[in-house]
């Protein structure tokens, strides 16, 4: 359960900044230099993680050219932080 706003990552090159906020329905936004070519990849990836962890949140990603693994780690960590003490993992 997402109970508060939380962030993970940074705006350093090759990283991304993920911000998670409580929301009634899942939504995500993606911005950065690679928006034109990686929008679909990132939407797929974020949705997959949110579904796996059964969370409902607004996920905002500012991408500075992060690799797949970086994006995953940042999204999962942001969700983890936003979930409070109980965590998001089953």
């Amino acid at each position: 359960m997402i109970i508060k706003k939380a962030q993970a990552g940074s705006l350093e090159s090759s990283d991304c900044l993920v911000t998670v906020e409580p929301a009634d329905a899942y939504s995500m936004s993606y911005s950065g230099q690679n928006e034109a070519i990686f929008k679909r990849r990132t939407e797929r990836l974020a949705l997959e993680i949110a579904t796996r962890l059964s969370v409902c949140a607004h996920i905002s990603i500012q991408d500075q050219g992060a690799l797949d693994v970086t994006l995953r780690a940042r999204i999962e960590t942001a969700l983890e932080r936003a979930a409070g003490d109980e965590g998001v993992r089953a």
């Binding site: 690679n34 034109a36 070519i37 990686f38 929008k39 679909r40 990849r41 990132t42 990836l45 690799l67 797949d68 693994v69």
Partner: peptide
Amino acid sequence: EALTGVPDDPE
């Protein structure tokens, strides 16, 4: 691409 994911062509 296993590291970066597969990019789309810009529109």
